[in-house]
């Protein structure tokens, strides 16, 4: 069958053209660096520390942004003009929010 001939041709071509065996420059050093980073406990620990530090920075940035927008979005009547800085303003409102439930509750004594 002629199809067998074509199959032989494809296989013959593959045998005559084996894949190249060249290696990228410095490949063995790359492997050793990967091994060192995966087996060195200090490297693992520092990688975790970096991750934790980045997460903490992200949370701090989000908290700062939320604090800033809540101050900007306050209606005029809620603004306390005696407070100078946005931080003081924000802490004043945090206080109000915290004690709101206590203030509105019935007197128990």
């Amino acid at each position: 069958m002629k199809l067998d001939r074509l199959q032989q041709l494809v296989i013959g071509a593959a045998r005559q053209a084996p894949p190249r065996d060249d290696v990228p420059h410095g490949f063995e050093q790359r492997i050793m660096a990967r091994l060192r980073s995966s087996t060195d406990p200090l490297a693992v620990w520092s990688a975790w520390l970096w991750r934790a530090a980045l997460s903490a920075c992200a949370v701090a940035a989000v908290a700062w942004a939320v604090g800033l927008t809540s101050v900007v979005l306050l209606p005029d009547e809620d603004r306390t003009d005696d407070l100078d800085t946005p931080a003081e303003l924000a802490s004043g409102h945090l206080e109000d929010a915290l004690f709101a439930s206590a203030d509105s509750g019935p007197e128990t004594w």
């Binding site: 894949p19 065996d21 063995e28």
Partner: peptide
């Protein structure tokens, strides 16, 4: 281990390229 990598990397590259 680097010595083993150097010895067999060419062989493995040829295999992977298949």
């Amino acid at each position: 281990f680097e010595e083993l990598v150097r010895r067999y990397q060419a062989r493995l590259f040829a295999t992977a390229r298949r």
